[in-house]
Simulated scan of single mutants.
Amino acid sequence: MKWISKNFIRGLIVVVPIAITILVVLQIFNLAEKLLGRHLPIHFPGLPLIAVFLLIVLVGWLSSYWALKRLLELGDRLLGAIPIVKFIYNSVKQLSTAMLESQQLFKQAVLVPYPHPGVKALGFIMPELSEPLVEKVGTDNVCVFVPMSLNLTSGFNIIVPKRDIILLDITSESALQYILTAGAVMPRRPEN
């Protein structure tokens, strides 16, 4: 019974983010298709995709204006007040902010000995260690994020001695493709 419950929880951890992402994307496209189908005389495949893309660009552009910024802040506060929604929303917001705004995140792909010596895992060097960590592990260590295949939102932050890191001469995009495809697309060197 313990084995079943443990693996059920593990399965939920893998399936729930994927299912929620698929559900949200499908709902957005269905809503766009219903709205466009009602108001436009033409219909062609891909129209909802174009409409959603243009809507996202429009919201991004409008978010730079004062009134919409205040409205978005109000929405942030409202979502931050609902107990379960607060946790999900803040986690997703922090992750997307880190991934989309950081110039250093996922910049340098490396190989590190993980999960044990003799085995190598592809990871990414993260920003410098904070002072409390440096005090405990020393300055000759770096933090490396080792993402899980098929799911970049989960993985392991490991602190590795610099001498154990192998820098890779590959593009970060191809390293991410390698991880997201579980090794089906191999990393490649940057094109000069």
Rank of each mutant, 00 (worst) to 15 (best):
G37Y: 11
L72V: 14
G46H: 12
P132F: 10
L49C: 07
N30S: 13
K93T: 06
L31N: 06
M1K: 04
I22G: 04
S5W: 09
F44Q: 05
L49Q: 15
I125M: 12
G11I: 06
E33L: 03
L168A: 01
P113A: 10
V24H: 12
L40Y: 14
V92I: 08
G11N: 05
P117A: 15
K69E: 13
L40M: 14
I22D: 12
G138S: 07
L58W: 11
E33Q: 02
T181S: 14
L26Y: 04
A51S: 15
F106V: 00
H39V: 15
V185M: 09
L49S: 12
K6S: 05
P132T: 06
I170E: 03
I88C: 04
L129C: 13
V146A: 02
V57D: 05
P41V: 11
G37E: 14
V185D: 05
L95M: 12
F156A: 00
W66M: 14
V59I: 14
V59P: 01
L47C: 07
I166T: 15
W61G: 05
P17C: 06
N7I: 11
T139Q: 11
I170T: 04
W66P: 11
L180A: 02
F29H: 05
M1A: 15
L78P: 02
L58M: 14
K34V: 10
E128H: 08
N90V: 05
V144T: 00
L122D: 01
L167F: 07
G118Q: 15
L133T: 15
N30Y: 08
S130N: 07
I9T: 03
F145T: 01
S102C: 12
N7A: 04
P83G: 13
T181E: 04
L26M: 07
P45V: 13
Y65D: 08
T139R: 14
I84P: 02
L74M: 08
N7D: 08
R189E: 07
E191T: 05
S64V: 15
P161Y: 11
P161I: 08
V110P: 00
G155K: 00
I18S: 09
F8C: 13
P132C: 09
L105N: 03
A98E: 09
A121T: 11
V160L: 11
V160M: 05
E135A: 12
I56N: 12
V57Y: 05
V15Y: 09
I9H: 02
L152Q: 01
H43D: 14
P113D: 13
L122Q: 00
I20D: 04
L176S: 01
V92E: 09
